[in-house]
Design a binder for these strands. Sequence first.
DNA 1: TTTGATGTATAAGTAAGTTATGTATTATTT
DNA 2: AAATAATACATAACTTACTTATACATCAAA
Lengths: 122, 122
Amino acid sequence: MYICLIYTFMLYSSELIKGTLKTIILKLLADNNRMYGYEMTQRVKTATANKIEITEGALYPTLHALESEGLVTTEIEYIGKRVRKYYKLSPDGAKRSQEKVNELADFMNTMKFLLDIKPKTT
Amino acid sequence: MYICLIYTFMLYSSELIKGTLKTIILKLLADNNRMYGYEMTQRVKTATANKIEITEGALYPTLHALESEGLVTTEIEYIGKRVRKYYKLSPDGAKRSQEKVNELADFMNTMKFLLDIKPKTT
DNA sequence: TTTGATGTATAAGTAAGTTATGTATTATTT
DNA sequence: AAATAATACATAACTTACTTATACATCAAA
């Protein structure tokens, strides 16, 4: 007797995640005081059961953009000889975080209505 | 005495809508047998209270892409002298429509969980 | 008669990603 | 001991899916 286990790594098509990265980062920082980039990728990966994987090529430019917009501040620390860059929300960033999450929530409600998606019955 | 009415046209930032256009079109066609492009833009506009406005520059290339992928078929009709192009789902398109809607629903549930968004209490 | 709505289409430019590559340290496996 | 994987940052080249602008044409309304 064979037992066949198929693990489907149902990663979302990338267009979907596209508009949401900044919102995700800002929300993570709103909840966690400070985080570093690699930590964010791991947090999102485990929190979504591998459904959302943030690539470094997307993450770091976005973090730099948030910094240059004044929405986050940074602190560099050394773990042994390895550099680690912590990000923290500025007051503007905290405000923006809420706005972005609210906008996304509103958008998702609109889309659910438009696509006639029923709430999960779990 | 002045009465000041401010209408806020809270259009979503375009990155959000970005990944969802094909899904919206396929779902419209799944529900309506056949539709033409302009009709789709109006339907979405009114159904979302002007929150989502599909631009022609996005719509028509996407419709052409769907056609060349074999997901929709077209019929041309004349209203007076004015041309109108109707789109209809192919069997593949009907299947894809369901898949896309399911994927988006799944994605939105994941995002709601990740961003700790509470269901609306209305 | 000219503006707005209806209707389709494409070209140029942009934003936000992907993919690939690079560098370096530390832990784990063979 | 050496190779591989994980940790940690970063950037360059490319792609995708849009936006913005333009174009053309018909028909209704001001």
